[in-house]
Amino acid sequence: MAADLELIGVTVQAGEKRLIRDVSLRVKSGEFVALLGPNGAGKTTLLRAALGLARCTGSALLNGRPVREFSGRRRAGLLAWLPQQALVTEPLEVLELVAGARYRFAETRAAALEAARQALQRAGADGFVARIASTLSGGEQQRVAIAALLAQDAPLLLLDEPANHLDPGQQIAIYRLLGELRAQGHGVLCVTHDVNLLAHIGGEVRVVGMAGGRARFESAFDAAELAAHLGELYGVPFDALAHEGRRVLLARGGP
């Protein structure tokens, strides 16, 4: 199913403070957009506005219609979210938890459990199907959270630092999985701090930089000027190094 998320002039205000000012962004099925920026830039708030969780002015449109006009189930059928916060605070079985993400489907319990099992397998988390989620390590919990995201089976995915808490091998595995999902037609908007992981996506990747609540640049991941953009965004110079035919972007320490 094709889907199209369009943010036009989105501004989010929390009391006196403007968290986001006038940000526009579009993600369609089959596209991969990475959202980069220093802490407090408003990246997470932007995802929350797209979900209808943060009240905003401007437009957050899903297939041309304001997100907040959608029923919960219809929206969940188009847009899934991997939040940054920990998965659970109470002892729930992994399989139950992932099956809970099937809320939008009117289906039998057996079908929900089967879909949950498949999602766990895809996320490389089938080893702890019967474990209690709150007893898993941070990295294992993150893979279960990704399984829950996949179980929801939505065409657009909003991801908030999906490689959080994962070791380098797992980080690459997750980004390869995201690349596969994009190749299958999913649209992905992914907040990340590690720009080099984007090399594992494959194909065209757009990078949007945010700082101080504003969009600062938009660039292709391959573009030569990305290093300069990142330097400006984070306030430290970035070097583009070539390593075995791949470009590695490295923040330079010191003055």
Binding site: G52, W81, V88
Partner: peptide
């Protein structure tokens, strides 16, 4: 029950999974 099961994984997550 199903909505409450989804809510057990957090309010915002339940919202994103389609729970009103």
């Amino acid at each position: 029950t199903r909505a409450l099961q989804s809510l057990a994984a957090g309010e915002d997550r339940a919202h994103s999974q389609g729970v009103n």
